[in-house]
């Protein structure tokens, strides 16, 4: 039985416009067609709030990732989905970015920059978000990492935001026996 073990770290982020209180919710999403059983570890989580910082500075999370999957098929390889939020001193959370990256298929250590974006909406919503801090959200955040056929993102107006840095080590076992070369 082929297995996939992911060991990694969400190192941190940079270039977010929000001054401080950044945190990141992450989830390793697998394909929906097959049941990617988890043998151990967590597939989702949330980092701590990096309170310090300033505009454009780096935030540091150093959040560990350790997940162990059974590979049922080569279709639906896991993807990392991140949501970056900022928490202000009043305790209100503002969305700062959605991002995703494919988990590499080749075994070894990989450094990945996840480019994030955030929906910005029209002029009215932008005014609201400036004064009230509420930005439009995605109704279904799973589309960040999955595009279904026939669905297009054209028309979704977004603003690019910062970069999340991920370091991940991929270990596979028994894939060669299934004829997979990766």
């Amino acid at each position: 039985m082929a297995e996939l073990h992911l060991l990694g770290t969400i190192l941190g982020c940079s270039d977010f416009k929000e001054p401080s209180g950044l945190f990141c919710k992450w989830k390793i999403a697998t394909g929906e067609s097959y049941d990617w059983q988890t043998l151990g570890g967590e597939v989702s989580g949330c980092t701590q709030v990096d309170a310090l910082g300033g505009e454009g500075t780096d935030g540091v999370w150093d959040h560990p990732i350790d997940s162990h999957f059974v590979i049922p098929s080569m279709i639906g390889w896991p993807r990392m989905r991140v949501e970056v939020w900022s928490r202000d001193s009043g305790g209100s959370n503002t969305l700062c970015g959605y991002g995703f990256c494919n988990i590499p298929t080749s075994p070894g250590l990989h450094d990945i920059d996840i480019a994030t974006w955030v929906p910005c909406g029209g002029i009215h919503e932008r005014l609201c978000s400036f004064f009230l801090g509420m930005k439009p959200h995605l109704k279904d955040p799973s589309i960040v990492a999955h595009t279904r056929p026939g669905e297009s993102r054209f028309g979704l107006k977004c603003e690019s935001s910062g970069v999340v840095y991920l370091q991940i080590e991929v270990i596979t076992s028994n894939l060669e026996a299934q004829g997979v070369c990766c």
């Binding site: 940079s14 270039d15 974006w117 910005c120 297009s152 993102r153 054209f154 028309g155 979704l156 107006k157 977004c158 603003e159 690019s160 935001s161 910062g162 970069v163």
Partner: peptide, 10 residues
């Protein structure tokens, strides 16, 4: 097609 993106200045 991807979404419509405004730039970020890194």
């Amino acid at each position: 097609a991807t979404h419509l993106a405004r730039p970020a200045y890194l």
